[in-house]
Design a protein around this nucleic acid. Structure first.
Lengths: 208, 208, 208, 208
DNA sequence: AATGAATGAGGATTCATTCAT
DNA sequence: GATGAATGAATCCTCATTCAT
């Protein structure tokens, strides 16, 4: 009849505690993809399904909706931090990594707007007052710190000379990152950096 | 058959058909504000409530979610068109109007992303394919045409010399427009234009 | 923009009191067609639109949902009454008219079920108790009386000998009247009469 | 993002996954009763309430309106199939079971009309074209097959000798099944069979 | 530790009915 | 008398979150 939850269905064996870490990773990966395709408002159930786990597992690892988004984000930020911490790190090189994440991850763009609100102008209270989740703010700060660390000590021509401007520039590029395909989005991102007169290294994920 | 209200209950006054035009305007105004505060995904019921009308009125005037957003948008675009068509219109002046709308209207920012996807990375089909609503595309083109018309015939230093770059610049500024208050958002918008080396006139709505 | 009720639309001139009767007739005709195509639950607004009048007119003529259905019905019943009252009326002839209405009018079939409930098993109160609208019951009785009047005084072989059985037979035929097209429905109605061993005259509306 | 219940409010007990099968059965049972009393158009919420489950459960088990109706139906048809498959099955005996379902289940009556249209004259498209759901058609065929299997090999007097006529007869009886109480409906069903000259066994649900 | 069923609030949408004009 | 806009209750449906197993 209806091929629905009659519950005499087979239960996909409890793969035991060992799977926990793997599940977490699978969830984050699934979330990244789902976010990229369906936006940050995609149903959590879809993420769990794509990760191949039950809804409960998602909640075990991530207490609320923001937690999972933050986890995706955390990966993004961590890679930027690592790129920045790397031996011969240059601003251009790090911005290449930043650009990669802007192009690939909707969550990352969301972060840049996190000190304003979750969504672009998004607010929560009935009164319209804004609030930011501590975690997002924390990540935002880590990101800023990483980027700031790459700024040359003195001022150089053609490079924003204050970290404020640098953060602003990143937000601006994020605004340019529109388009159906990653290729198109990358093309626009690079055009945006060019318009700002800022040199960017190869657009790539950071692999230590 | 269907048993509906029939209510002998008190009805909150039917202001009559004369209110129609007024209601429509109220809805658009309410939508503009709600969008600004709560984002484009705000519940329609909230818009109706703010406009002081019943849910049904909203649906009568705007058959679907996009229709109301487009109406807000249309006002935005129209003002830009008018500013551009104005006698002594300058690029800087028009960009001031554009900036005003970027700062005030979430819908307007959404438009800039409309030729890429409805939301930022938002997709609709299960397959992740993107689609754009014809209306949004139309408005997007009107906006671009208006802006293009303001470009100087020759190239001037410090001004993007292709309309593609100009549109890109607007998208970039839109990325910078973050923040809890209009003031903060305007501050950031102006900083963004400055970073691009583009001069902007007074940030103001266009009143013929 | 939206080509919707901005209310500066032209108002279709008030055609004056003379139109009242015409409007009523138009409504009944529209209802008959709408019912046939969309069932008895079709929105009233659709009926009004098809009749080319405002919603208010519908309510002026018919205070509630049942009133309009009953009006359609009344026409059906009246034709049967007239056919039965006709000079050389025979049972077979009248049943031909009855069949015509069964085939053409969803409302008429509904009537046959009216002493049970509006819909088939339909009930209204939360308690599941049934009630029938007085008007429908009245029509039902008129219909029965008309039919009874055609019964031969004595019993004839092959003809139901009680009016109860005759009414039952009509209900049974109504159950057979299924199908996408009037033709198909008529075919089935005739087959049903045949199965009952009851002779039916030509299937036709009654025109005096 | 979306601010959902989160409710610290008391939750009316989650009876756990074990309840799934029971819930499904409860829903089908509730639907059967609700349909019988309020017709096939009864609000789904009422079914869920009667079954003592949340709205969501209904949607989990039955993705759409037709699914639940079909489930009720499936039970009806299955019982008829079983009665027909039974050792000493006779046509009269099976028709007794059929009659039981006609008397008890509005959904079952609906089925008989399914190869014509969903509702009686009900249509879906604006164009008035009819369509039947595959599932309903499937069930309709199973029912017909089961009944056909009970027909005697040769022709016997007083029994329809073609399966077409038999199906027509069932539809006709369904038309007779009107009335506020099951008792009244059963009385009329039996009278209908009598009028057709068809012998029917005891009216009863089939219990293996 | 995992599973996925259950819950129910919330948002979307429709339509009977009223009523200002 | 007619018009059709306005109202809002009711229904549909989705999905965040909890929790029995």
């Amino acid at each position: 009849m209806t091929k629905h939850p009659t519950s005499d269905e087979r239960r996909p064996a409890n793969r035991g505690p060992k799977a926990a870490a793997g599940n977490r990773a699978a969830l984050v990966a699934a979330a990244r993809e789902i976010y990229a395709v369906h936006g940050l408002d995609a149903p959590l159930s879809r993420i769990a399904r794509k990760a191949g786990v039950g809804q409960g597992v998602l909640y075990r690892h991530f207490p609320d909706r923001d937690a999972i988004a933050s986890a995706v984000l955390e990966e993004n930020v961590r890679q930027v931090e690592q790129a920045a911490a790397d031996e011969g790190a240059t601003l251009a090189g790090v911005l290449g990594v930043v650009t990669w994440h802007l192009v690939r991850s909707a969550a990352f763009i969301g972060l840049l707007h996190a000190d304003g609100a979750s969504g672009r102008f998004h607010a929560d209270g009935e009164d319209g007052r804004f609030h930011t989740h501590a975690l997002a703010r924390d990540l935002s700060e880590r990101f800023e710190r990483a980027l700031r660390g790459c700024l040359p000590d003195g001022h150089r021509p053609g490079v924003p000379d204050a970290s404020d401007d640098l953060m602003l520039a990143v937000a601006m590029v994020s605004g340019a990152v529109i388009g159906p395909t990653p290729e198109e989005r990358e093309r626009r991102a690079l055009a945006a950096w060019r318009l700002l007169g800022i040199t960017v290294g190869p657009v790539t994920a950071f692999e230590g």
